[in-house]
């Protein structure tokens, strides 16, 4: 398949392009292109988790039960007050250690734990080995947790902007409080939340570049590998340090993604505000 595309392009551009085209379609480059899926999966799954955590956080923030309100405010303020990178690294490690703690309770003997004080895990049996895919899931959840806090703030604000009259009308029709919350407040608030959520999505999209910090072979890691000075004993210096070219490609990739997202959110906003009186 790829060969035919390459041949077609060579026919179009001339022979001079053949070497270049063959170079950027070799095995390593194909692995780089394939690794874009991690970024896209992390962005979509992260956004999914962020909306869920955002809804939960916003619901907690306006709960009738004070401790739940405190938890909601604590979550939103702490996560937003700390750099996303810190949380992004902290959460998977903390999660792994918590699981390993329960493993060690079940699998390690008391002696082993006493002997291994000050190091982790307490015994080899408690070690939890994570595969690349497990790290990807953890990364998605931690992206969701971090940007869920931002989303919670946006959703909380949007819920407040839902006209009171609509909720009162629902109550007057005999809906229970839970029904009013889920069927009216949550359904009506999207119009007000969309501009803020689009900002959160942009932040999340940019944060997907951090996947390599969690040992995922993502686009950044591949760009670094491919661009590093390439010396082969057989062929001599294949190319000098080309990393900036690969990073420039990623730079442009993210800008294009931002442009596409902007378009999509504009369309969503238009759709969500059908039938509403809007300014502009």
């Amino acid at each position: 398949m790829i060969d035919t595309i390459v041949n077609a392009l060579v026919g179009l551009l001339g022979e001079d392009w053949r070497a270049g085209l063959e170079y950027i379609t070799n095995g390593k480059h194909m692995a780089w292109y394939a690794s874009f899926k991690f970024t896209l999966i992390a962005a979509v799954a992260g956004a999914f988790f962020a909306v869920i955590f955002g809804l939960l956080g916003a619901a907690a923030k306006q709960s009738k039960f004070a401790p739940l309100r405190w938890i909601g405010s604590f979550y939103v303020n702490i996560v937003r007050g700390v750099p996303d990178v810190l949380f992004f690294i902290f959460f998977p490690l903390a999660f792994e250690q918590t699981v390993e703690y329960f493993f060690s309770r079940a699998r390690c003997t008391a002696e082993e734990i006493a002997n291994n004080a000050g190091s982790w895990p307490p015994c080899d049996a408690a070690q939890w080995y994570l595969s690349g895919n497990d790290y990807l899931i953890l990364a998605c959840v931690s992206l969701g947790l971090v940007y869920g806090a931002f989303a919670a703030n946006v959703i909380h604000g949007a819920m407040i902007s839902v006209p009171k009259g609509q909720l009162e009308a629902a109550q007057a029709y005999g809906f229970t409080e839970k029904q009013v919350f889920w069927r009216f407040k949550v359904r009506q608030m999207w119009v007000y939340a969309l501009p803020g959520l689009s900002n959160v999505w942009m932040l999340l999209l940019k944060a997907t570049s951090l996947l390599s910090l969690l040992q995922i072979a993502d686009i950044v890691l591949w760009a670094d590998r491919l661009g590093a000075p390439n010396y082969l004993a057989r062929a001599g210096l294949v190319h000098p340090d080309w990393r900036w070219k690969y990073y420039l490609a990623l730079f442009i990739f993210y800008i294009i993604m931002a442009m596409i997202s902007e378009r999509v959110f504009r369309a969503l906003q238009n759709r969500a505000s059908r039938g509403m009186v809007t300014v502009n």
């Binding site: 670094d224 340090d241 990623l250 730079f251 993210y254 800008i255 931002a258």
Partner: peptide, 22 residues
């Protein structure tokens, strides 16, 4: 403004550092 707001700082750091190196 669009380019620097639309791309991650993480990539910008790598890009400028590797450019300076080259």
């Amino acid at each position: 403004i669009y380019a620097f707001r639309g791309s991650p700082l993480f990539i910008q750091f790598f890009m400028f550092y590797s450019f300076a190196l080259s």
